[in-house]
């Protein structure tokens, strides 16, 4: 393809990315580096600040949500949201969770927190699906193959999208309004304490590649268009689409990072690490399902994780 076509594709995917994922890397990095002035995120570093964090979110969000019937559920989910960027005041359904600040045994707190994360993840799957549909040619693929590509791609995409929100000390959540420390996440009871640590390790290394939002958009499309997902019916058109996006990504990297010569190769290598992280993550969720009596998995996530790895 001509360079001009490849650049047009990059622009198109960047626009689709901005449309579907409002918390961009540029915005997240500005927040993390303290360049947003008065709007510094609220820091959650222990149980006490977790409770206060919810209040902080409630105070900020009530004016935005006067019209809404499900105040409390929305706010709880807003508190833990933001892994991967989210629409402020998203209108989608949640699990009927109770507020984190409600009294209850400490044990239940991790589960409630986990449920909020699930709701946010389900919403992110919807955003990722919309992004996928904007990839030229995706919607023309066999519908079964579209389902397969999403089933196997969305968790990888979710993990890549967490990276811009993270640094070595913690992660932004709740649309960048809250910073939750890595130490706090590590202090949760097992196995919750083990969930985020591999993502931090991956993200710190991934962030060293210093991709910008337009390169992130192309990389996400490359991940979605993986022709080696199990059970695909018609691999050829998927590989053709991926090849074009790969050309566009390679060109974009050359233009943006002229001195990082091996960047394209390094980025492609990350896809191997990513698959291992997803496999471990899914096994951890399956373990949770067995060991936690009160655990219920969001129907969309259940659908995705069933018979995955």
């Amino acid at each position: 393809p001509e360079a001009a076509d490849l650049r047009a594709l990059a622009r198109h995917l960047y626009e689709a990315y901005l449309k579907n994922f409002p918390l961009t890397k540029a915005k997240a990095r500005a927040i993390l580096s303290g360049k947003t002035g008065d709007n510094a995120p609220f820091v959650i570093h222990d149980m006490k600040s977790l409770m206060e964090g919810e209040q902080f979110i409630n105070c900020r969000q009530i004016p935005l949500k006067e019209h809404h019937h499900h105040h409390q559920q929305q706010q709880t989910s807003a508190l833990t949201a933001g892994l991967g960027g989210a629409h402020q005041g998203s209108e989608y359904g949640f699990l009927g969770m109770t507020s984190i600040s409600e009294e209850g045994p400490q044990d239940a707190l991790e589960l409630r927190f986990f449920h909020s994360c699930q709701s946010r993840s389900a919403e992110a799957v919807r955003e990722i699906t919309e992004f996928a549909k904007s990839i030229p040619g995706f919607s023309e693929l066999d519908l079964n193959d579209q389902v397969t590509l999403l089933k196997y791609g969305v968790i990888e995409v979710l993990i890549i999208m967490m990276a811009p929100l993270m640094n070595k000390d913690g992660t932004l959540i709740s649309y960048g309004q809250i910073f939750m420390t890595r130490e706090f996440l590590k202090s949760l009871r097992k196995p919750f304490s083990q969930m985020m640590e591999p993502k931090f390790e991956f993200s710190v290394k991934f962030n060293m590649l210093e991709l910008d939002d337009s390169e992130m958009a192309l990389f996400l499309a490359v991940i979605i268009l993986s022709g080696d997902r199990p059970g695909l019916l018609n691999v050829k058109p998927i590989e053709q689409l991926q090849e074009t996006v790969l050309h566009s990504l390679e060109l974009q990297l050359k233009l943006n990072h002229p001195i990082s010569l091996q960047l394209f190769a390094k980025l492609l290598q990350k896809m191997t690490d990513l698959r291992q992280i997803v496999t471990d993550h899914v096994h951890l969720i399956q373990l949770l399902k067995k060991t936690e009596v009160d655990m219920c998995l969001h129907p969309l996530l259940q659908e995705i994780m069933k018979d995955l790895y």
Binding site: E91, Y92, G93, F94, S119, A122, E123, V125, R126, T129, E130, K133, L143, N144, Q146, V147, T148, L150, K151, G231, H298, P299, L300, E303, I304, K306
Partner: peptide, 21 residues
């Protein structure tokens, strides 16, 4: 496969209309 993934399928088929997750 579509039958086993009703919500994903629905998300793919519906355009931008909100789906009750």
């Amino acid at each position: 496969l579509k039958e086993k993934h009703k919500i994903l399928h629905q998300l793919l088929q519906n355009s931008t209309s909100p789906v009750d997750l």
